[in-house]
Design a protein around this nucleic acid. Sequence first.
RNA 1: GGAGGUGUGGCCGAGCGGUCAAUGGCAGCAGACUGUAAAUCUGCCGGGCAACGCCCUACGGAGGUUCGAAUCCUCCCGCCUCCA
Length: 434
Amino acid sequence: MTSFDPGPAGLLEELRWRGMLHAASEGLEARLATGRPISGYNGFDPSGPSLHIGSLVPIFGLLHFQRHGGRPVALVGGGTGMIGDPSGRSSERNLLDVETLEFNVASIRAQLEHFLDFDGPRGAVMVNNLDWLGSMGLIEFLRDVGKHFTVPYMLAKDSVQTRLERGLSFTEFSYMLLQSADFAHLHRTMGVEMQMGGADQWGNITAGLELIRRTSSTGSGGEASAEPAFALAYPLLLTPSGAKFGKSEGGDSVWLDPAMTTPFAFYQHWLNTDDRDVGVYLRWFTTMSPDEIEGLDAEVAARPGARAAQRALALDVTGRTHGTDVARQVEADSVALFAPEPIRDPALLERLFASVGGFEVDAAQSGAGAAAALAGAGVFSSNGEARRMIQNGGLTINGEQLRDPAAPLPEPIAGEWWEVRIGKRRREIGRLGR
RNA sequence: GGAGGUGUGGCCGAGCGGUCAAUGGCAGCAGACUGUAAAUCUGCCGGGCAACGCCCUACGGAGGUUCGAAUCCUCCCGCCUCCA
């Protein structure tokens, strides 16, 4: 198998090959096989100003959907975000004020534009459910949405069942109704026929199918299929190595926003992918063909030390997220910073100072002990940590391994720069301030 | 509103008057081995310091008992269960 049907008919086949298909609702395959235009949506949480790489799963779901001729709709949950979905065990969400929300939505849209095409007849569309949920009255909600669900149906959902022991508020219990209302609204007003989401969303998504089934005037589409709407779920991304996906080694999220995670750090994160995970990531987070990916799989098996797959993955994902030029640049920077020999070129150091993260040591401090100077510059969170790092032999500056925390920093390169290597993975550039 | 339970370091989870900066596990960091991987082994893992010791801050919050409390008492707050 080297290629998939480029139209809607090939979507499921491709997702299946990529391992991104967990479940599809009754009739979806047949609906896609008709080749008629179709719109599908996926929800995103706008509670922060940036998406992180965990969101790449739904993003690539929409991306593949668009590649196969579908029209992606990205819904931001300005309304539901305030409620809290019991499926994601987050405890309590805070209300966002309107300006923050609008700012976040704009930021998220800008990020999605790197992945989805917002132009043309099949162009992606962004919607905010606050626009319709916000103005919906309680009576209206109960009559138009609540009326169509029975309590036993709601109680039967996994997301509710698992919380029954520990307890959940009525608000959280109602979440699936709001999500159903979203789906029904998009179905009615924009003709959106499909909702996509993670496997943990399945219950909420099918609740939406239920609502649409009961409220849409069936038969208006002539010989339309029996089902008026469809659902598609991705598997939960549990890495084969068992680590939490989306977190860096330090446990922080890896953000798509270059101001929150530098492109260099972003590239490094992918470059460090475990051998056991890299094949999955190539399938999920690139649009490479089966031939290319299987070729890289073979490379991993034959010459794991070369990490060809990791390099290809890192370059591809970074390029898509931050631009090809930036990706090439950080790739080159990585080679330089991880070469056995330290960087001696002041011009290069000056550029890296800005791009990989730099710190300043003022002249007064530079004479003090290295540990104190680096802690003072914020490279380490405390004096003790810096001291420990040096005592463990984990700190190399300008190619010279530090041994004594009290000894001063080595002579700066060109009277100004320190190339700092912390452990095997961290790289920082220091500059002598005045 | 009533009854009971519970709140410990990033997470889980011991401790239940001193020997507790707090057992253990996970996560994390560094080193060795490697491939900027995994596994394994070693060390570290609240902060400070003239540092095999001393000081400060910590066991939901505020008081109190005591020579001494994370451990006992009082009040408050959060969470959970059941009853109304």
